[in-house]
Write a protein that binds this DNA or RNA. Structure first.
Length: 332
DNA sequence: GAACTATGCGGAA
DNA sequence: TCCGCCTAGTTCA
């Protein structure tokens, strides 16, 4: 499931391929038929991502709000103008995806090669893009246009050359400008939105005001937007912080360091499409770790395995109905 | 073919 | 605190 980095990636794809264009909208599955009818034929004016929410603005003050939830995914097909900030990682993602082991976003061209790995200005290429954390890479479907509908597609948006299919979202609704602003107002700071200094202060004051455990606070989208279960576990480990520490008991400097860590990790995730949290490793060790889904993290999904640093068994604990992984020694 | 899993979250109890 | 939503891939029988 996407955490904040994926939503920003998707927003960038929309920015480059849909903004400024008229879209055809439909709901092949039927569950968003009314909303699709409203969107159909409108011009896409802008797109923004805040935390795990994406907002697509159509002319006439119509906003589409999408939250992918646990299973949601956007599939892009057709001709894609790649965002230069995410194109640089295509080679790596294409490779991992060919092996079928990469649950993160994947981009690959018709031949399944890495010809899109160029860095710099956006370029046009006939590609099939699957922006999904949950699913493995698709076989390329060739040049069929429009692409055949596969599975439960809640919403399909199409320009003359690009298609985007949405499936399994928790939320897919139309909003007025006021409703959209109200949604954003409920969200905590996102490092990629707004003023950096102000964001940090908002995060620090929200955390230090509460007696709730830092583990719960990091997952609270009104405290900080975009962090999910993976980034939470990894950030707590990186800070060597006990997950049960109440927010108000975490030293201010540690809270600030948590924020700065998130502000560092998120852009890396946006660029690479992967939740890279082990940047302290040597290049060789890092390459080996990233090759396997289960070896990418310090603690996430490593219950019972030895801590990479101290060898203590990683603990799995349920916190707020979610799995929390941590090292009881390093994070004592 | 059933059961299980998942990076989420809102609402009922 | 628990339940239900929602999708698709994987695992197991």
């Amino acid at each position: 499931m996407p955490e904040g980095h994926s939503v920003h990636r998707i927003a960038r794809q929309f920015d480059h391929n849909f903004v400024g264009k008229t879209v055809r909208a439909s709901s092949p599955q039927g569950r968003f038929a009314e909303g699709a009818a409203v969107l159909d034929g409108r011009e896409v004016v802008s797109v923004k991502a805040v935390g795990k929410q994406m907002f697509l603005e159509a002319d006439g003050d119509v906003w589409l709000r999408v939250h992918l939830g646990l299973y949601g995914a956007w599939d892009f097909a057709g001709e894609i103008l790649l965002d230069p900030t995410i194109a640089s990682a295509n080679g790596r993602m294409g490779q991992t995806n060919q092996r079928g082991t990469d649950p993160d976003a994947a981009i690959f061209d018709d031949a399944g090669e890495n010809s899109l790995a160029s860095i710099g200005a956006p370029r046009r290429a006939r590609v099939h893009v699957r922006m999904s954390e949950q699913t493995k890479g698709l076989e390329d479907d060739g040049s069929e246009w429009p692409p055949p509908v596969v599975g439960q597609v809640r919403l399909r948006l199409m320009t003359d050359v690009t298609a985007a299919d949405l499936r399994g979202p928790t939320a897919c609704v139309l909003q007025t400008p006021d409703e959209m602003l109200a949604t954003v107002a409920k969200l905590g700071p996102d490092p990629l939105v707004g003023d950096p200094a102000e964001n940090e202060e908002r995060f620090v004051s929200a955390v230090r005001r509460k007696g709730t455990s830092i583990a719960l606070l990091l997952m609270d989208q009104s405290v900080v937007a975009g962090i999910g279960n993976v980034y939470r576990a990894e950030m707590l480990y990186r800070a060597r912080l006990n997950p049960h520490t109440p927010g108000k008991a975490v030293p201010e400097e540690v809270v600030r360091e948590l924020w700065r860590d998130w502000a560092r990790l998120l852009p890396i995730g946006v660029e690479t499409g992967q939740m890279m949290t082990m940047d302290g490793l040597s290049p060789d060790a890092h390459r080996a770790a990233m090759a396997s889904r289960d070896d990418r993290h310090w603690v996430y999904h490593r219950a019972g395995l030895p801590c990479r640093v101290c060898g203590t068994q990683i603990v799995l604990e349920e916190v707020g109905a979610r799995n929390l992984y941590w090292c009881p020694k390093c994070q004592a």
